Simulated assay, not measured.
Amino acid sequence: MIVISNPTAIANEINTIHALFEHGLELFHVRKPDFSEKEMKAFVAAIGLKYRSKLVLHSQHQLAEDLGINRLHFSEKTRKQIDPETLYHYNEKRIHLSTSIHTIEAFNDLRIFFQYAFLSPVFASISKSNYQSNIDLLEAIQNRTNHQTKLVALGGIEAENIQKTLAAGFDDFALLGTIWNAENPIKNFELCQQIVLSY
């Protein structure tokens, strides 16, 4: 199970991140698009060394080595601009790569460099108003031909639709709005976790 940070600051954010890890969170995506280098360093330092191996950087990739982070995420736009040799270099250095896509056709065309990819939005987004796909992605993934890259569902994922999402063929899912828009983020995380354990 993956959790993505809220793009902007949230009250008690670091405490919530620590609590998520203590409750079994596997990977935490640091998606803070407006962060400067200094802000990114401070945020990662606040999370602490204990969880460093579970952090994924969405931006300020140049800081990864100094911060001891070996997981990088590329947006669809950045992925299309990056040189394949650079991706090969990352793989040689055992840096885990992930990316974002919005169609199953784009997923099928992904190069082998990426460990997993977010396909979104599977359902109407919780964190972004009026953001949903104009096609049924649960149906579209029946056309999946890429089985080397893990397919991760993103967008509107909550306890009520996790089972349906996994049954449709997704390998995993990522949570954003159901965590950061909730009054009790940890309770929502535990609900999702219970569904996975019983699936």
Rank of each mutant, 00 (worst) to 15 (best):
D136A: 08
A9W: 10
K164C: 10
I14F: 00
E13C: 07
L63V: 06
H73C: 09
A159D: 05
R94E: 14
H58S: 09
L55T: 00
V44T: 01
D172V: 04
A42T: 01
I112S: 14
E105G: 11
V56Q: 01
V122T: 06
E26Q: 15
L154W: 01
S5W: 02
Q142I: 07
R144I: 02
Q163Y: 14
L55D: 00
G48L: 03
V122R: 01
A124K: 15
A159P: 04
I186V: 14
P33W: 02
S98Q: 06
P185T: 07
L63P: 01
L119F: 11
K93R: 15
T149M: 07
V44I: 02
E37R: 09
L63F: 01
L197G: 11
I82N: 07
F189T: 03
Q163G: 12
Y51A: 03
S5G: 04
L110D: 12
F113M: 07
S53T: 13
P121R: 07
L67P: 00
A159H: 08
W180G: 03
G68I: 05
I112F: 12
F189L: 07
Q132W: 06
Q163V: 10
K41I: 15
T8G: 04
V56M: 03
I112M: 10
A42G: 10
I104S: 04
L67H: 01
L154G: 05
F123M: 08
A182F: 04
A168C: 06
G155I: 02
L197C: 08
A168Q: 06
I69H: 00
D66F: 12
S5I: 04
L191H: 09
L138R: 14
H96L: 15
Q115M: 12
C192G: 13
A124D: 13
N143E: 12
S59H: 04
R71S: 12
M40N: 03
D83A: 13
M40Q: 05
H96F: 13
L110M: 13
S120Y: 00
E160D: 09
K164T: 11
E26A: 15
T178D: 12
L175H: 01
Q62W: 13
L27E: 11
K128S: 11
I195C: 08
F35S: 01
R79M: 15
A106K: 06
L154K: 04
Y88I: 11
F113A: 14
T145E: 10
Y199H: 13
I195N: 03
F118T: 02
I47F: 02
T8L: 11
L176S: 02
A46Y: 02
K32S: 00
H18C: 05
K38I: 15
G177A: 10
I4N: 02
N91K: 15
F107T: 04
F123Q: 07
N184P: 08
A168R: 13
H23F: 12
K187G: 08
I186H: 04
R94T: 14
I17C: 01
K128V: 12
H29T: 01
Y51V: 06
K41Q: 12
G68A: 09
G155F: 04
G68P: 00
R111M: 10
V152T: 07
I141L: 10
S5Q: 05
H23N: 15
F123R: 05
F173D: 03
R31A: 00
Y88M: 10
E76A: 15
D136W: 09
H147A: 07
E158H: 13
N15Y: 09
L63C: 03
E183G: 12
G169V: 00
I69K: 01
F189N: 05
N181I: 11
